[in-house]
Structures are given as C-alpha cells and as structure tokens.
Design a protein around this nucleic acid. Structure first.
Length: 559
RNA sequence: UGGCCCAUGGUGUAAUUGGUAACACAGCAGUUUUUGGUACUGUCGUUCAAGGUUCAAGUCCUUGUGGGCCAACCA
C-alpha cells in the first residue's frame, strides 16, 4: 500500500510494532484490530480511548476493525448492553467492519477444546472451586497436581462430552488445561477452560450449559477472525503466555497480543462495579446521568464525539500508571464547541431591568452574530424591549474596584443592544434586590454606536416579554478527591454533594424554543449547553456541558 | 519471598533509537476583544538513586529504590 515516507508525528509503541510488521510484510501487509467489550455495562471514557485506539489504528493503516462482543458469561450479559455499546461506538464516529460475538464461536471453541483433550493437553477436573484454589499454590510456592490430572484421554473425552450434554450439575466439573502447576506465572497453573453453567444466554439461549472461560475464548476468537494486533490493557499481560500457548498447541492463526496501560481520570471512576454502584445506590439518576463518565452520559451532557476523539489522541498511550487530568477533556470540548456552537443568550439567575426612557410596547429586532469564530454561521434577530432580564450576578450594590459590571450609576453594554446606565435599584421588604431602573443611550445601538461611551462590561440579557422559561442543570465533578479509585474510603464519603445544581427558572431567548438534544449552544458568557433528552416543548430543559474559562471566577476565588 | 510490567515538569505524552530534553493541558503575567470567552505573547518547571561504559547517556550496563499486575468456575 502507500508508504508514509515522512511521518513527522512520532509513533506510539503499538504503531511502531505495526509499522515494523508492515515493513516485513507480516500478515500480507494487513492490519486487523478489534474492540472486544463484554456486554455487561455501558461504555465509559476508558472504553472510548480504546475504541479510538483500535478503530484509529485500523483507519491509519488502511486496515479493518471488528466489534466483537465478548459474551462468554451468560449471567452478567444482556441485550440492552449490546445495543447501547453498538450505538455508542457509532456515535463516536466509527462503523465496525464486522459485528461479531464470541458466542458465535461456541461450536468452534468446543471443537478446539476437544482437540486439546485429544492431544493430552486438557483434562476434566472434579475438584470443587475451593479444592482447586487450595492446590494452586502461591506466588512463591508451587502448586500441586489435581488428583484428576492423569485421567485418560478417552475418559476426558467422554466426561467433557457429557458435561456438554448437561449430565453434571453446575460446579461439579471443569475442563482445565494441563500445563504446569509449578509455573512462576499463576495463570499457567492448569487454568480453567470450561465451566458448567445452566444459565440462559442472551443469544444462544439454552443451547449450551458449558461456557468457555476468557482464556479459552478470547485469543481463539482473535485467531478465528485473523486479528493481527490484539490490543488489551496491562492487566492481561500475564495471560499472554497462555494466549500464545493455546495458539501454538492448537496450531491456529497467530494473533499477537499487545498491552497498554488502562487510563484513569481525575475526579471520577471507570470501574464498572463502582459505576454500577453509583447507579443502584441512587447517587446518580442512571448510566446516562450527565455526571457519569459513560459515553451515553457525555453525549447527553453535550460533549461531542469529536472532542472525545481529540482528547483520546492527545493523551496517547503508554505503559505506566496514570491519572489523566479531566481538565484536558473539558478543554477539548470547549475547543470543539467554540468553533461550532451558536451563541445565544440565556439568563440563569434573572434580575429585571426596566429601561425607563425606552417606550413601552416597543420591540426592536436587533442583529446578532451567530458565531464570531465562523463567519458562515450568519446572523439572526433578537428582540429588545423596555423590560429585560439580566444576570443577578452582573450587578453589585457596592462593587469592588476589580468588578467591572453594573453598579449604581455605572454603565454597561447589552450585547447586540444598547448601552445602559443604572439609575436606581429596588428592594423588597426582605432587602432582596428585585429590579434595576436604568436609562439607555439611543445613540449607542450596537453596530451604529456614535455615543463614544466605553463601558467596561458587555452583558447578556433576554427580553421579559419574549423570554421562554427553562430548567437548566449545571454539573460539577462527581468526586471530591482527585483519585477516588485508589482512595481507601467508601465511595459515598468521596462524593461531591454539590455535583448537581438545578436551575428551575432560567430565562432563554425565544430562538431556543425548537432546540433538540445534540444541538450545541454557547450561552453567552455562561458556557456550552445542549437540550436534555427529557426536554419537551412545554418544559424546556438544558444541560451545561462545560463552563467557559472564567478569569473573573478565578480572581474572586483568590480574593 | 516468584513471574511479568513500569519509572521523564503539577498532568499526559515525545525525544531523529547514544548527539541541544520537546508538544499539549494546567499555573502565573500580559496584549487584543461588544463574551472576564476566543486568539496571541511571555513565563514557570523535568530525566527515581548510585556507580559504570563513552568525546557524549533520559536512552546502554550493574546494583538499588519506588509503583503496578497476577493465586475469580469474571473479563
């Protein structure tokens, strides 16, 4: 194929391996990878980087990438998860070359097991789980052979066949590889190959009552599909010896396994067990709660597939332990949305402004730019009237020097509108600020400003008459500690109690009426927002994907 | 007292395979700005340790130290 002569960008270690293989014309110059999730949960950010890696490699080297559901354990796997995984992969922007299942190979895998038995390399063991564990030895002591280890090939064949027919109860027998109970690699101490489970499988139903273990299924499935580069996480490194042993003894296609370090992310967890616990204990509303690190949640929150792909590319791959700063993902989201999101105005904490010298009942439709980063995005009209909503935080009765928004007597520019000056503020009986009385400068109209006035701040606003109310959800990190997965304390103690803020009565500009999930907006000065999946015409609901960078908030914090 | 993997700024990855330690994020300071956004500029700071080989070591060797994974009828 095409030789990349001058590759400026440096290669990661897997790309180096692939390019070396390609140079040697291994596998006839073909690259075939696979993404092999077990359908027992939703895909999360860790999977997302693996998806990008495997599909990305295939794309880069003109190869292919299969999606293979590693569904060899019927008790944990469900069709619901299969569907969510497939839709998440597609949303990420990748179309699998083949959609396959390990369960498709149950027949072939059974035959391979028979072959191992015939070669005297596997045996049926009647020991209980406890007995097998007891004979396993420890990392520093050799194990001992099972009393069933030397059964004849004929007897093993007979027993395994009868296991398959359902003649023995669950747990009464297993098939084990006959390797070496003294191996320094614990995985090689006669690993279990098949176990009896009378469980309904999401695809094969009740056809089988014995199921292959990971080590009898994964590498073999790779081999059946002729996967050239089987990429997995570092935890599987000890399995590689067995992976190669099976391929060698069975004399099947020599797929090769390569390992990279799993990604950890700051202020969140990616263990399926812990994510499931967050869901079942009600700490979040579901797998797609926008605070979750799942792909479904990130999509619902308003993150884009493009930003996740860029993030994945930027963090690269390696072999050392790591905690990736989630701030980088937020940066990638902003980077993407800044270029594409339409700028609109919405007020989260409304304060009424009455422009006392503006005619009652008058509406001016002001021109405003949809996206200053994209001239092709065009302009639209927004209504300006005598009564407006502005952000309560944009006025201070007694503003400090560094605050350059509104205060008594101060000027402010209303974005794409007029410059106003605060004349008065009104409070209710509780001393709560309720209203600002201002005057506007007719010569200061945006785009044709001849006033010569230079207010320090430009504020967002919405016409009271035209505003549409909405619920808006704001999110903060789920956990208080940077690395919750390595914290000894209970998950509950580490949770950020303020990870969700629900704003009930936000006021939005009327153009947002028909926004749909998947649409991205920048609410001027507030961040990037997208309609929530539960948004309806009568009850608009938005999620904030991420805030804008906020130098003022930072300055305030520092005091 | 085993096997395997790993060690580069606050974080994540690079380093033409022995030849000036770089890129991005974060931080800090500033310029521009009808977003305290964006863009732009500057700045901070690093090879786990000790020996050795070499004109030259993040890279090779030795010995340490530190961390991770492995003993589920899970994947």
């Amino acid at each position: 194929m095409s030789e990349n002569t001058k590759e400026k960008e440096s290669l990661n270690f897997i790309e180096e391996i692939i390019e070396k293989d390609l140079a040697e014309n291994k596998n006839d110059g073909k690259v075939l990878t696979r993404f092999p999730p077990e359908p027992n949960g939703y895909l999360h950010l860790g999977h997302a980087t693996t998806v990008c890696l495997n599909f990305g490699l295939a794309k880069k080297y003109n190869g292919n990438c299969n999606l293979r559901f590693d569904d060899t354990n019927p008790v944990t796997e469900e069709t619901e998860y299969v569907e969510s995984i497939l839709s998440d992969v597609r949303w990420m922007g990748f179309e699998p070359d083949n959609i396959l299942y390990s369960s498709d190979y149950f027949g072939k895998l059974f035959d391979l097991a028979i072959e191992l038995i015939k070669k005297g390399l596997a045996y049926v063991d009647d020991s209980s789980a406890e007995e097998i564990a007891a004979l396993k030895g420890t990392t520093t002591e050799a194990g001992k052979n099972s009393p069933y280890r030397d059964r004849s090939i004929e007897e093993n064949l007979d027993l395994f066949e009868r296991m398959r027919k359902g003649e023995f109860p669950a747990g009464s027998k297993v098939l084990r590889a006959k390797i070496d109970m003294a191996s320094p690699n614990m995985i090689m101490r006669d690993p279990l190959l098949y176990r009896i489970k009378f469980a309904h499988h999401h695809r094969t139903g009740d056809d089988w009552c014995i199921y292959p273990m990971y080590d009898m299924a994964h590498g073999q499935s790779d081999s059946i599909e002729k996967i050239t580069h089987s990429i997995c996480t570092l935890e599987f490194a000890p399995h590689r010896e067995l992976y190669d042993w099976c391929i060698d003894k069975l004399d099947i296609f020599p797929s090769k396994q390569y390992e990279f370090a799993r990604r950890n992310f700051s202020y969140t967890v990616v263990s399926k067990r812990k994510l499931l616990k967050l869901v079942t204990d009600g700490h979040v509303s579901g797998w797609d709660d926008p605070r979750m690190p799942t792909i479904a949640a990130m999509r619902r929150r308003g993150f884009t597939a493009n930003s996740i792909r860029n993030f994945s590319k930027r963090i690269g791959i390696g072999k050392r332990d790591n905690v990736v700063d989630l701030g980088l993902l937020e940066y990638c989201v902003r980077e993407d949305l800044n270029k594409t999101a339409t700028r609109v105005m919405g007020v989260l904490d409304p304060l009424k402004v009455v422009i006392t010298n503006y005619p009652e009942g008058k509406t001016e439709w002001m021109d405003t730019v949809n996206n200053p980063e994209d001239p092709d995005a065009g302009t639209r009209k927004i209504p300006f009237t005598r009564e407006l909503w502005i952000e309560k935080g944009d006025f201070m009765e007694d503003p400090p020097k560094k605050f350059f928004r509104l205060g008594p007597g101060r000027l402010g520019r209303l974005k794409s509108g007029y410059i106003i000056q605060v004349d008065n503020f009104v409070k209710d009986e509780n001393g709560e600020l309720t209203e600002l009385h201002c005057t506007y400068f007719p010569t200061s109209k945006s785009g044709s400003d001849t006033s010569g006035l230079k207010p320090k701040a430009t504020l967002h606003w919405v016409s009271v008459e035209h505003a549409i109310p909405a619920e808006v959800k704001l999110f903060d990190r789920l956990f208080l500690v940077e690395d919750p997965s390595s914290d000894e304390r209970n998950l509950e103690e580490l949770l950020n109690p303020n990870s969700l803020t629900v704003v009930k009565n936000a006021m939005l500009e009327p153009s947002l009426k028909d926004a749909k999930p998947g649409d991205s907006f920048q609410f001027f000065r507030l961040g990037y927002f997208t309609p929530d999946t539960d948004s309806t015409e009568s009850h608009l609901a938005f999620n904030r994907a991420v805030t804008l960078r906020d130098a003022w908030a930072k300055a305030k914090k520092k005091g």
